[in-house]
Simulated scan of single mutants.
Amino acid sequence: MLLFLLILIAATVAQIFLPWWCIVPVAFLLALLVGRTGGKAFLAGFFGVGLGWLVLAIWLNGQNNSVLAHRVAELLPLSGSIALLLLVTIIVGGLVGGLAALSGCWLRQALWPIQPPVAPVVEMEPK
């Protein structure tokens, strides 16, 4: 949950000022620092970036009264559907963010593997 919120906030703020691909190093570095398992890191990256892109897409769509989104949806084979365009946006952004976070988590596991706790040794007394 912490990784999801960090990716959501950092990636959304970063892409306001930087190019769209800034989500890759953001998700990668945050998962490298905070990620514990690959599956959870992927899901945090997927939903963090996907939700961030959805919010920004809706905000930008409202700024121009859906004109640009409708035209892009007509260019793509989406029959002019803005809802399908938003769905494609979520999936593409989510996959990019999820794979970046997964890579960061796997690098963390490769460099600093989590050591299982050592069980105490119990010696048996001879009879």
Rank of each mutant, 00 (worst) to 15 (best):
G50H: 05
G35S: 13
M124T: 02
S81D: 01
L3K: 03
I82G: 13
P120Y: 06
G45D: 07
K127R: 14
P126T: 00
P117M: 14
L6N: 13
H70E: 10
L2W: 02
T89E: 00
L43A: 10
F46Y: 06
C22Q: 09
F47T: 04
L60W: 12
G35M: 14
F47K: 03
W20T: 03
G52M: 09
W20V: 08
L107S: 08
R71H: 11
A10F: 13
A14H: 08
R36S: 13
G80L: 08
A57R: 12
P77A: 09
I90H: 06
G62A: 12
L3G: 03
L84F: 00
L78W: 05
A57D: 13
G39C: 13
E74P: 00
A110H: 10
L43E: 03
G45L: 03
H70V: 14
T37H: 01
L54S: 02
P126V: 00
G97R: 08
G98S: 03
L75P: 05
L95W: 11
H70R: 12
G62H: 11
S66I: 04
V72H: 12
V72G: 09
G97N: 10
V55N: 08
P25K: 07
L8S: 11
V49R: 05
F28A: 05
G62N: 12
M124F: 06
Q63M: 07
V92N: 07
L102V: 07
I16P: 06
V122A: 00
L76N: 15
V24C: 00
F42H: 05
N64W: 11
R36C: 14
Q15E: 12
A31W: 06
T89F: 00
A44D: 07
V121S: 03
V24N: 03
F42Q: 07
L2G: 08
V26K: 02
F17M: 12
V92F: 07
P19V: 07
A110P: 06
L5W: 15
W53T: 02
S103M: 15
F28I: 11
A73E: 01
F47E: 09
A27P: 04
S81V: 01
V34G: 15
W106E: 05
L78F: 11
V122D: 06
L87V: 06
M124W: 01
L87P: 06
W106P: 02
E123R: 12
L111N: 04
I7S: 06
A101T: 04
A69W: 05
I16D: 13
L68P: 05
C105N: 09
W59V: 07
S66P: 01
V26F: 04
